[in-house]
Structures are given as structure tokens and as C-alpha cells.
Design a binder for these strands. Sequence first.
DNA 1: TAGATTTACGCTATCGTTTTTCCAAAACCG
DNA 2: CGGTTTTGGAAAAACGATAGCGTAAATCTA
Lengths: 356, 356
Amino acid sequence: MKKKISIHDIAKELNLSATTISFVLNGKGDEKKISEDVRRKVSDYIKKVGYQPNMIAKSLRTGKSNIIGMLVEDISDPFFSGISRGIEAIAYNHKYKIFFASTENDTEKTKVLIKLFRERQVDGYIMAPPSGVEDEIKALMDDNVPVILFDRYLPSLNTSTVIIDNYSGSYQAVKHLLENGYSNIAFITLNSEQTQMHARLQGYIKAVEDSLCDPIVARLPYKSGYQAGTEKLIQEFIKEHEKVDAIIFATNYLAINGLKAIRDLGLAIPGDIAVIGFDDNTHFNLFSPSITAVAQPIEEIAQEVVQQLLNALSDERESKKRRTVTLPVKLIVRDSSFPKVKKEIVHTASSIMKNS
Amino acid sequence: MKKKISIHDIAKELNLSATTISFVLNGKGDEKKISEDVRRKVSDYIKKVGYQPNMIAKSLRTGKSNIIGMLVEDISDPFFSGISRGIEAIAYNHKYKIFFASTENDTEKTKVLIKLFRERQVDGYIMAPPSGVEDEIKALMDDNVPVILFDRYLPSLNTSTVIIDNYSGSYQAVKHLLENGYSNIAFITLNSEQTQMHARLQGYIKAVEDSLCDPIVARLPYKSGYQAGTEKLIQEFIKEHEKVDAIIFATNYLAINGLKAIRDLGLAIPGDIAVIGFDDNTHFNLFSPSITAVAQPIEEIAQEVVQQLLNALSDERESKKRRTVTLPVKLIVRDSSFPKVKKEIVHTASSIMKNS
DNA sequence: TAGATTTACGCTATCGTTTTTCCAAAACCG
DNA sequence: CGGTTTTGGAAAAACGATAGCGTAAATCTA
């Protein structure tokens, strides 16, 4: 590896002190009254030899790394990778780099990751945390390191948070199905106490109860591991609940497996079962039928998260303030929740025929 | 921010020298003959106060950052995020962290990113490079910094590379379609000279010519920006080529837009047009019909890339060797390329009827 | 028991910056 | 012209850890 050129090499070459080079480099020429002459000499030389400052040394000295640590559940999940993309782009414009890592929702792994990030002196954190890392996050905040949570939060902690209106998302979904003539609406979720999952469930329950119906809920094990397992479980659930005419899936992962399950059972959507997914997917409108979904505002989440973090980063006082922003969701109506009406008529007709 | 505890603080507290602490910390106790007694004292104290070494200082001193820079086209693209996920996981086990960034296939942005990474003394690079960054990559290699390319390579550069057998992928796709009775097979690709796109096109052309057919190729502008634009272009292409009975899309992005185009034209798959996508997608088997695709071995690519990089990183000599690994692809046959035979018969029958 | 060897650490320079303090010379001021 | 400011920059001390020597004390050797 070729010897990299340092600020001292430049100083020596130009018969100046490292201090002066540093000032010029950092645009403190005015403040520190460096003559135009020297400034130009320095800039020219730097350009000529292609000098690149050593950020590591800089970080060591200043205590700032200009790195943001981002912990998500799974970087290859479309929701998280979409948000990551947005965040990376904005951060890049503000001279921040992002360290991404996947927690896999594993508390221990997350702790290790936080430790790793701390060792690297990351300036701020963006996380979709698993439960069980409250102490670590608390420690960060106690040390005045900005932390922004998104997607979910930790109830016992007062943090800055960007979430979406999960409750309303489910509520809207149920209402929509009811309006379209579905009356036995099931909710398939994960057996998780994470806040976003909880809110989605509560929104569903409230909406169903408001309509004087009974909630029908399936809570699938969280770490089922194999997709096949999830699909099987959903199939069983559907078979055990014959009268269910609509299902809301609480996550994208569940929706995909649910669609497989429904397909493999030979059922029609929305003829036999209407479907709504939570968290939209680029491909949902290509499915046959296209899939109705509660869409999360990916772009806005990314923007809001970064904005909050940058604020906290730039202003000590600001970082003390903790605010929770709740972004609205949007129900994207497609064919999988098409009004049941027509179907009903046919149905009724055939029933009549049978009954007569 | 609370004052962080340093190795010297520990030394002072325990009446030892920083050196000793460092040795214990780095497991050089044996080599440097540190007594069990001292070792325990140090470890205990470290655990007690929760000391965390400052990687930045360490990096400055050692010249190694234990960071790998990874440049992909778009971190939110399923292909790239899938690979990133795999790479991150493996690297994590080897104490390496990854810096991800999206190049957006923009040469200038890529150059800036490489510069940014260099400033941070990144130990090694993994890239799916746009064209035009040959000089920067050359400079890295000249400085003995390991670089592994994947997905595509730069013909003018002798680098370590992990790619897939794009040529064979297209070839197999064409053969498969021919076997299933399709004879007017079009290829829709991007107007890009990137190696992977080029190989895919060549494989298609060779296969078509081997079968004494004429290639029918659409090269869509690379940066069409809007999806809608791409879809429109594909629609026009289809309308202009009535006899085409099968299309191979050279990328996932094209396949998705192509499917939309076909749907919006009211054409049936595979009845009117059979479809094969290059690069499989989790959702392709949920589409109706399910979509045949050439699948890339995501896991293997990630593994191979990291393995090569780790080798180069651990062994100076190894890093001089440049090898290109070509991984096989796999044609996943689904319904969108279902044999045309039956249809043909019906067709013929109806033709006869019409003609008679 | 003198000298050699081994054991168990310590000293200090160093990595490349930034930052605080300091200083000579020039400029200004009445 | 003596003293005060201003100008333009230098010197040196961090930042936190590591590495190359160095060395005192303990143990061994003959």
C-alpha cells in the first residue's frame, strides 16, 4: 500500500505548519486570517497531489465520526430496504454515512451490534428495535447520543420516534371490508408484543367491535423460521374458520404466505375470501387479483427520521426534546377486496334454488 | 456526553501500564507473558466499568478499519439487498462491518463514494460498478487495496470477480421456450453496455440463431426514470411486433413493467405471450400465471464474494491473485412459459374452421 | 555465585488531525 | 516614537490505542 500523504507532508513541502493546512482545509481561512496567497498555494498543492484527509484521525481528534448507525430487522425486507435507501440518500447529502445492520429481531445480536457501533463512535442511531434492549438505548440517551426509533417503539422508554398510524390502518381496512359487504373478517398476525403489531391488532379489534362483530384472530408464532410452516398454519386456520370471508394480514410476510395458502386451498379471492395486506408491496397491483393494502409512507418515514436525527445532531438542546411523530397510512384499494354485493346476489339466487 | 473511559484510565486505576491493558485486551497475554493474576484483574475491571475500546484510535494506529465498503446500484433492489444481507451476515462473523451505498449507476456519484470510503480507510471493496470508474478502481488495486467486483465487471480491468453465467441463462431460457413451442421470441433489455446485460443479450442471440430464427430485440433507454415510461415503451414494442409469442425480459425491473404492459394490453400469458424474467423474484410464483425466471444464486454470490475478499484481506499474496468465478444460474420453470402445444391445436382447429 | 535467560511488564514514539496557546512582525495611534 | 492591536502563522498538546524496544526482577545454569 502506497504511503498516503498526510497534512504534515504537505506542510513540509510548502514550508508551512500543519496548523495552517488544517485551517485552510476546514475553511477557517477567514476566521484565522490566512492570507489569500497561502490559501491558494495550499489548495493548489492539495489538488495537485490528490490529498485526502484521514477521517479516522479527524474522528479521533474531534470525537465525531459522521457515521449514523442504523439497525433494522432485516435489510433485505422491502420495507426496511426502502427506508434505508431513503435515509442513506438524505444522510449522504449531509455528509453522514450510514452503518446498516440487521438485528433479525434478536435481542442479543442487537446488543452486540449496539456495542459494535459504540466502539466505532457512531454519532447517532436509527433503530427499529427488538424488545429487550431498553437498557442499552437508555445508556445511549444518558450519554446524550441521539437515538431515533421508527416502525415501533419501546413503551418504557421516552424516545424520539417516527411511527405510522397502525391503529387507524387496521381500522380503515376493517371498515372498508365491511362496507364492501364482508362480515366475517379475520386478522392474522404474529404473536409479538411489538408496538406496531399491537396497534394493528387493536385497530382491528376496535373496528370489528364497533360493528358488533366478533374478532377472529390468529397469532402465528413469531420465529416460525420456514415460510412453509407459516403457510401451513394459515391453511389450517382458514379450514378451521369456514365462515371467514375476509382476512387482514398484519405484515407483508404474512400476506405473501397467506396468499399462497389461499391459492393452494383452491379458494378464490375475493370470491371466497377477500384479502387486505398491511404494508404495501410493489407487486401487489400485479397479482391477480391485485391486492388491497395499507400502504406505509416509506419516503416520509425516511425523511422524518433523518430530519429528527440531524436536528438532534446539530443542536444539543434539540436532542433533549423527544417527539413522537405519527405518519398517516393510506388504504390502497384494489381487487382483492372488491365489493361482495354481486357475488352475494348470485349466492342468494343459488341458495334459493337449493332451498326450494 | 459522559467522558468515556480509556485504556489509560484503566491503567492508572490498576497501577499498570496502558501497554499491559492493551495486551490483555488483544489476547496477547500468552505471547507477552502476562500473569494470570494481572489478566484477571484487568478483565474484571473492564467488565465492571463496561469499558469499550475506541476502534477509531485503534484504526488510526493500526491502519486497519475493519470496514468493508460495498457499492451497489440500489440497496432497495431485491437482488442487491439480498446479496447485501448475506454479505453483512458473513462479514459480521469475521469482525468486519460493511458500509453500504447506492451508486444509482451514476459514475460521478460512485467516484465520490469511493473517495469517501478511502477517507475512512476502508479495508476492502465490494462493488457492482457502473462504467467509468476504471481509474479509481485501478488506483485502489495499485495501492494494494482488495477489490471484488460482482454482478458485472469492467472489461478493461483485471480484477477479482464473481458473476453468474448470464449467457447460459438467456440461452437456456430461449431453448426452453422453443421446446415449449414458442418460435417468435423477443428479448427486451436495457440499452446498456454493462457486461451482464451484454452477456444476457448474446446468450439470447446465439440461442435464437442456433435455431435458425431471427432475433427480435428491444433496447430500452437505461435511465427512463419513470416506470410508466418503461411500461409504455414495452406496450408499443409489443404492438409493433404482433407475431411475437414469447418475451424474455433481461432484468427484474423490465419484467415487472412488461407484465404490467401485457396486462394493460389485455393479452393473456402464456396464451398470447409467454414470459420469462431474468433474475427471479420472491413473488413470481404468486403471480397468475406464475412467472418462469432465470434465478441467480444469491446466497452463493454473497458467500463467494466475501470469501474472496477475506482471503485477499488476510493474505497479501492472495490479494495479488485475481480470479473470476462464474456461478451457474437456474431456470425456474413456471406457468408463464407453459407449453404452447394445446393452444396450437385449438388454434389450428379454429383456423381450419375459419378457412373451411 | 556470576552470568545467562526468562518472566512480566513499562516507556515512549506514533498514527493524522484539531485546537489552544503563543509569538513575531507589521500596522496603527495619539 | 513608545505602546497597543492586528495580522499571519507556528508550536505543542491532545485524541486513544498499539508496537517496538527496554529493563528490572526472578529463575536458571554451570
